[in-house]
């Protein structure tokens, strides 16, 4: 049997949320930047994919594309995208300790250790990639 709930109404006021809500607070601003970073990373990936598709069309097409990328506008874009990518990754690895519980026997590995290990791993992996590609 379902109980009839007492039904009644009362008025409430819904406050509108201003479009600039994320500018009022540093933390919300950083959060929006993180959201925005996804946009830059996505555009970067599209460019990257386009470059790969040109590769299959031969050396010339790809060479020309590479030339275009050297222009000031694109360089600026890459710098910005790089900063966003680093920021995004940093925030991602920073919460690792919270997200993943790691146990050694009965003992819980402290959050900070997990985060530190994750961040260190990220730096090392990036360094290896950098080394391999710039050699």
């Amino acid at each position: 049997m379902k109980q009839p709930e007492p039904e009644y109404t009362y008025p409430t006021y819904h406050r509108p949320i201003p479009a600039t809500w994320w500018l009022r607070d540093r933390k919300y601003f950083l959060f929006m930047m993180r959201e925005l970073s996804s946009f830059f990373i996505a555009v970067f990936l599209l460019i990257y994919l386009y470059g790969l598709s040109l590769l299959s069309k031969g050396q010339a097409a790809y060479g020309q594309f590479q030339e275009t990328l050297r222009s000031g506008g694109f360089t600026l874009f890459f710098v910005v995208a790089f900063i966003f990518a680093v920021y995004h990754s940093w925030t991602w690895w920073s919460i690792m300790g919270k997200v993943q519980v790691v146990r050694l026997g009965d003992h819980k590995v402290p959050e900070r250790v997990i985060t530190a290990v994750a961040l260190a791993g990220w730096v090392v992996a990036s360094a290896v990639v950098l080394f391999v590609f710039t050699r």
């Binding site: 959060f31 993180r34 959201e35 919460i95 919270k98 997200v99």
Partner: peptide
């Protein structure tokens, strides 16, 4: 949840809801 993390910051009882959500 898109990971704002503010819930955990303001929680007066250190519940850490952000952690609960991510886990």
């Amino acid at each position: 949840c898109t990971l704002v993390g503010e819930c955990t910051e303001v929680c007066p009882k250190r519940v850490d809801p952000a952690m609960a959500i991510q886990r």
